[in-house]
């Protein structure tokens, strides 16, 4: 998952202007930290898995727009995104099935703990993390697929105009 340093430099002609690249380099870490904060504290403050996962996907999208898609695919490749997506979907179905052993489907079997702590409320923080990772990888993968396909379609347009 290491990126080559020349992909992120300002002289690389791919991507956008150096002003955008400098600002994105500063802001990227804050966006990811904010996204993880909203996912992890979803049971205490407003937020939750869906909002936090979408914020993380927006962080990857701004990486793709500013530096080109090679850098974003170096950080999370399409195979990695597919594996994370499918594993989280599988876990989201399997964990409530364990609850059947204790009572009924979707029973909250993890002990509750004291309220207003980070580790509390049973498996609600665990579900927030699972949904957050699932939404992030899905939206990032579909954005990369649309961007690649869009560029393919505009090369088709150029070829058609050249033939005419």
């Amino acid at each position: 998952m290491a990126t080559k340093p020349e992909l992120m430099s300002s002289e690389n002609p791919k991507g956008m202007t150096p002003v955008v690249k400098t600002v994105v380099r500063f802001v990227m870490g804050i966006i990811f930290m904010f996204g993880w904060y909203i996912i992890l504290y979803g049971h205490l403050t407003p937020g939750g898995g869906f909002a936090g996962g979408t914020i993380l996907a927006c962080g990857y999208v701004i990486l793709t727009l500013a530096f080109g898609k090679e850098l974003a695919l170096g950080k999370m490749g399409d195979m990695t995104a597919s594996i994370i997506d499918n594993t989280c979907a599988f876990l989201f179905v399997t964990i409530p099935l364990i609850g059947i052993a204790f009572g009924f489907f979707f029973l909250n079997f993890v002990p509750h703990g004291k309220p207003f702590n980070l580790v509390s409320a049973g498996f609600i923080p665990l579900y927030n993390i699972i949904i957050g990772l699932k939404v992030t990888s899905s939206l990032f993968a579909i954005f990369i697929a649309l961007a690649i396909f869009g560029r393919f379609v505009s090369t088709l347009v150029e070829e058609a105009e050249d033939e005419e």
């Binding site: 979803g42 049971h43 205490l44 403050t45 407003p46 939750g48 979907a89 989201f92 179905v93 409530p96 489907f105 979707f106 909250n108 509750h112 703990g113 309220p115 207003f116 509390s120 409320a121 049973g122 609600i124 579900y127 927030n128 949904i131 699932k134």
Partner: peptide, 23 residues
């Protein structure tokens, strides 16, 4: 449920089956 955010407890504990369908 032990969660301070009532909306999160409704989405993931009281009505968790709907969230499964949405996923």
């Amino acid at each position: 449920t032990g969660a301070a955010n009532i909306v999160a407890s409704v989405v993931l504990d009281f009505r968790g089956y709907d969230t499964l369908g949405e996923a």
